[in-house]
């Protein structure tokens, strides 16, 4: 009953109730099927042969089976396999790129050093002013009051530096 080209119905498993065609005979017990089901090896006891037959050569393609079954009015399984996408991989930097990186870092260092140097004279002027006030022999409380606001002024200056760094990196 079961030969190459015989239309069958699968009666067991995930594809039960779907029609298929015998494409290849493997053993006494097993055949290869294709059609509405997936293309796979199948036990003969899980197949119910039907009246219809199809002219197919042995081990025919899925496209050939698709054409002939559509003439009989049987739909076939259509799969949408995923396209292969390239894995994101980190590449090694070329020596030219590494040189550019180093130059950028050097530039940043130069900016930082210049700003630090700018700071130091400012503090000296203020220290001198405080020293002058001390010489005039004013009360200790006055000196303490003047020292505290100076520390507060330094903090916002640091934040400006960090913001300048970020802008240049971008």
């Amino acid at each position: 009953m079961i030969d190459v080209g015989r239309v069958c119905v699968k009666t067991a498993g995930r594809d039960a109730g779907r029609k298929c065609v015998v494409v290849e005979i493997v053993d006494k017990q097993y055949v290869v099927i294709d059609g509405e089901t997936r293309r796979r090896k199948c036990n003969i006891t899980h197949l119910l042969p039907l009246k219809d037959t199809v002219n197919i050569s042995e081990s025919a393609n899925h496209e050939e089976v698709e054409k002939l079954l559509n003439e009989l009015g049987i739909d076939t399984l259509k799969t949408n396999p995923k396209k292969k996408t390239e894995r994101p991989r980190s590449k090694r930097k070329t020596p030219e790129q590494l040189k550019e990186q180093k130059e950028e870092k050097k530039k940043l260092r130069g900016i930082l050093k210049s700003k630090k140097e700018d700071k130091s004279p400012k503090t000296t002027i203020e220290d001198k002013a405080i020293a002058e006030i001390k010489e005039t022999d004013k009360g200790k409380d006055v000196n303490e009051d003047k020292n505290t606001p100076q520390k507060e002024k330094k903090k916002p200056a640091k934040s400006k530096e960090s913001s300048a760094k970020r802008k240049k990196k971008e």
Binding site: V9, T11, A12, G13, R14, A16, G17, L48, L50
Partner: peptide, 22 residues
């Protein structure tokens, strides 16, 4: 089970129903 009538009919009864139908 991921089969026709899975969780409603047993495997033997699904086979019978398919054969009777065809």
């Amino acid at each position: 089970p991921e089969r026709m009538y899975g969780g409603y009919l047993c495997g033997k009864c699904t086979k019978k129903s398919i054969i009777n139908k065809h």
